[in-house]
Amino acid sequence: MRLTLHVWRQSGPNTAGKLETYPMDGVEADMSFLEMFDMLNDKLTLEGKEPIAFAHDCREGICGSCNMMISGQAHGPWKGATTCQLHMRAFKDGDEIWVEPWRAKAFPMVKDLVVDRSAFDRIIQAGGYVSVNTGGARDANEILIGKEVVDESMDAAACIGCGACVAACPNASASLFTGAKITHLGLLPQGQPERDRRALAMVEQMDIEGFGHCTLTGECQEACPKEISIDVIKRMNRDYAVAAVRYVEPKETAGAG
């Protein structure tokens, strides 16, 4: 099939970028969207032009690297799929496709379609973990967790950190990402001791990074390749509010003697 691509090209963080148009021919329905980009890049290379930089790695929808805004939809038109899982049979001959990077202040531009998503790492650093050092764990079956609870926790834990939620959100909010981690750990017994601290610290970091707020448009849930529910945002809000009221920083007196 023939397609017309409009792809965002920008040589670096501090230069101006623009949409370049590339006519494509010989695209096959069985190709993945990224394989079409491979084809385009091969062509550009042989023409002596610089290929388009784009993030990708596993190409099976789990590493969270790929991030294309495809004609206004994060990861393109297929629900519950990443860009690398999108196949060209989603399009038809003669289609025009716009490809842009995720756009958010908290995701600074790197090059072409590549942006810096390290803000997500810093949100996790703020508290997205259970503080247990290696070696001290008790037997795994001593902690009883009902199937329903662990399933709900797993739904949230499925987040791949791709940033589609931010990209699709009209406010560039990271609420779905942050809420997913707070929900994953907040539902489990292992996550209880640090639940308040975690919610406070992660939400604060999310704000520091410059993400917007949640207006519950539902766009994130729709764009999420793992179909994480906005229920996780509800949990984050509640956990944050409860923590804001009841959490008191511990006094620095422990360990005396």
Binding site: V130, V132, A137, V150, A157
Partner: peptide, 22 residues
């Protein structure tokens, strides 16, 4: 055997039975 204990302590949501066991 230690790996499973460690991972569960970290909050890895391994599949469980209704009774709560792994």
């Amino acid at each position: 055997v230690n790996i499973i204990d460690q991972c569960v302590a970290q909050g890895v949501p391994f599949a469980r039975e209704y009774g709560g066991l792994l």
